[in-house]
Write a protein that binds this DNA or RNA. Structure first.
Length: 300
DNA sequence: TTGTGTTTTATTGCCTCC
DNA sequence: GGAGGCAATAAAACACAA
């Protein structure tokens, strides 16, 4: 057991309740589960540590015997777990008063209640970290795909510019660009990333943000806008005529959305720890729900 | 029945806060 | 310095395939 002192032994064994203000009938140990009513359950073993403790005098000479006979673990009943889950949903931290009250109601040791809450918080944290990872990973994959597509589109545009400079016609550009760029532009299937054409102000705003946010960086945003602008000038086409893949640029007239505006609309990824620490909507107080996460991401 | 993987309960040691 | 929280871990209990 190591170098635990006696007080810590007592605490670890649930004996803290003996010296706490808990009523005696709450300190019945596993045996008390028999009389737990609708919630409790008899978990078997009749020679529990606690019952033995009641039968013998609690002199120091007996303590080592008790501690050398570790009690078997017993799982809580489904009703007890349900009760604790409900309590956890209300508040995932445990004040001493509440701990004693729960112990009383469930016929468990306060220490068991504390341990259960501790483990429940750990499970909750693990779960929320998994959720966070999955959400971020899918966002990453989606953005990566859009980024790759934009790189392809960029290369294609460069080639077309080169072609025009060396005697190609505007018709050549329009035909090939419209077809091939449509294929190259972002194709993310994620609803939040989807490039859409909308007419209402709200839709347009959201679409604009989401389109812009698909750019990988301010530099890329600048380049993408720049290339688009460049192509219009050189090909003499209006923004409406040239519509590669219905990108954000096609939603606005040539002068309706300058670079600064684009940057203004760009969202900023929340830092992981911000999300982790500031979202208290979930029951465990760790992490965040998928819905909240999506909101945070795309409404910046 | 048994071997194995997973879940749950409990312990230990360290850290922070009051 | 004690209380309580957390991370890491042990070990019992459970689930399930072979």
């Amino acid at each position: 057991m190591g170098a635990m002192d006696l007080s810590k032994k007592m605490k670890a064994r649930g004996l803290d309740s003996v010296f706490a203000s808990a009523p005696l009938d709450s300190f019945l140990g596993p045996g008390a589960m028999v009389s737990f009513g609708a919630v409790g359950r008899d978990n078997g073993s009749g020679n529990s540590f606690y019952q033995s403790f009641e039968m013998q005098e609690n002199g120091d000479e007996y303590l080592d015997d008790y501690f050398s006979q570790p009690e078997k673990k017993r799982r809580l009943s489904a009703d007890q777990v349900q009760f604790l889950e409900r309590s956890f949903d209300v508040e995932n931290k445990l004040e001493p008063e509440r701990k004693l009250q729960l112990a009383n109601e469930l016929g468990l040791q306060p220490r068991q209640i504390a341990v259960w809450f501790q483990n429940r918080r750990a499970r909750c944290k693990t779960k929320s970290l998994e959720t966070e990872y999955e959400t971020l990973h899918s966002s990453y994959k989606s953005l990566k795909m859009d980024y790759d597509n934009l790189l392809k589109a960029n290369e294609k545009l460069k080639a077309e510019v080169l072609h025009l400079k060396h005697g190609g016609t505007a018709q050549d550009v329009e035909i090939s660009d419209t077809k091939e760029l449509s294929e190259a532009m972002p194709t993310s299937t994620d609803e939040e990333h989807k490039v859409s054409v909308s007419t209402s102000k709200n839709d347009e705003q959201r679409s604009t943000k989401s389109d812009v946010t698909n750019e990988d960086s301010p530099r890329l945003r600048g380049e993408a806008h720049h290339h688009h602008h460049h192509l219009f000038v050189e090909s003499g086409e209006s923004s409406h005529d040239f519509d590669p893949g219905q990108s954000v640029f096609s939603l606005h007239g040539e002068d309706s959305l300058n670079h600064e505006e684009l940057l203004q609309h760009a969202y900023v990824f929340p830092k992981t720890e911000d999300v982790y620490c500031h979202n208290h909507a979930t029951s465990c107080g760790y992490g965040f729900s998928v819905e909240d996460h999506a909101f945070n991401f795309w409404s910046y």
